[in-house]
Write a protein that binds this DNA or RNA. Structure first.
Lengths: 226, 226
DNA sequence: GATAGTGGATAGCCCTACTATCCAAAACAA
DNA sequence: TTGTTTTGGATAGTAGGGCTATCCACTATC
């Protein structure tokens, strides 16, 4: 196919496709003349993947670049691909705030028996959340500039129900992956299972919450009367 | 306190605080002279909340504005606040792509017995995920321009384990909220429980996945040999 | 032969979230 | 008192992200 069909089927403009080619997100088409090239299904699929990561997965173009570079590296193991996908959905490094809660996170991970690399971005992300929660939910009038002990281990135990629920899901995801022989399917499952399922889980939680609010209003249960 | 102390304790520059005031994210300080004003703990807490929503929650300034407008509206019910928080973490409206999967989502919600408002942004977000998954994981060479039946109900049943795990969590979150009398605590719990816990859940899932990968490599289980 | 489409390159655009500068008027320090 | 710092308020500018528009010399198609 040529540019017109590619852009029509992918739902993007040719200017965008050309830009993606220039920044290395997709390979050039096969040249057939000085100003002609043909594209195949792989180009189409790649663009759809990029759009899904950008629009549904809310990644930045830079994050997509790094993730696809990992996808295209045949030397990487499934765990490496997963690490790249995890890095892609983590907040950009440089935010050093919240690192004072890292010891709390590490204690928590140790208590759960999870072995996590020290440079795992999710570790710092979780620390940032706990740090923010500690700063915001401290004693009613939070006085001191940087409350050091407020981010105690007592705030981490509120993660338990979530970790309990997520752990078996994660195990099932990892053990249910395709065999290493089907590398293309395996890699794509890891990427989509990380980036898109993250959004699906977020949406499902919101839907479950909305339904729970609905139920709590309709069935007073004890606080409200008819 | 005056500007200097406020910015030192909040960790932002005075230019940023002035900008937040101008766009209505925080109220002006109480004027004591033509070019003097005093701020109190509420200002400080508000700035910390804004920074948490922006940096940890990854909201845009516009999303924070709309969410805080709901927070400041005493006429809104807890469900209304939750709806505002849900809207804040949803992808901006205007993305109409993925709407062809809305019937699948609606079927799924009906099957689960969840009652969801038709304009719920999470509903469209979930449809966008399913649509993207359907487009990307169709038959090996996806041929047609817009595969209409590929996004079948068969793809939705893979949500079941996640929905099963999230539903009791959501119920516990909603029923465990503070009473309506403590409006400030209630509203803040809803906002933080929605926006920040979303990030915490994402981080926990990545950590659980990393740990599961670690375990699957160390304990071959059947596919790999020592 | 007329019309539309193409590859490649460069420049420009819009948006977001600040940041820098300016000013006259306090505030504090010696 | 005098010098230095800080402040409120306003306006203009900036850096980065993600495209978009335009141009040109070709090809393709009718």
């Amino acid at each position: 196919m040529r540019m017109g069909e590619l852009t029509r089927r992918a739902g993007v403009t040719s200017a965008t496709v050309k830009w993606y080619i220039r920044i290395g997100l997709i390979p050039r088409g096969e040249s057939t003349a000085r100003n002609q090239a043909v594209y195949d299904e792989r180009h189409l699929h790649r663009i759809r993947l990029i759009r899904a990561l950008l629009e549904v997965g809310r990644l930045s173009v830079e994050q997509v670049q790094q993730l696809l570079a990992a996808v295209d590296d045949p030397a990487l193991s499934p765990a490496d691909i997963a690490a790249a996908a995890h890095a892609a959905i983590s907040r950009p490094t440089g935010h050093a705030d919240g690192d004072e809660a890292l010891p709390v996170v590490d204690d928590y991970l140790r208590a759960r028996g999870w072995s996590i690399a020290p440079d795992s971005p999710a570790r710092r992300d979780l620390a940032a959340v706990l740090s923010a929660l500690g700063r915001l939910t401290g004693p009613v009038g939070n006085d001191v500039a940087a409350p050091p002990a407020a981010t105690g281990a007592d705030i981490a135990h509120l993660l338990d129900p979530y970790a309990d629920a997520l752990e078996p899901l994660a195990v099932a995801e990892v053990t249910g992956l395709p065999p290493r022989e089907q590398r293309a399917e395996l890699v794509e499952r890891i990427v989509l299972g990380t980036v898109l399922m993250d959004q699906a889980i977020s949406a499902l939680r919101r839907l479950a919450q909305e339904s729970a609010f609905h139920a709590s209003v309709d069935l007073p249960a004890g606080r409200r009367e008819p």
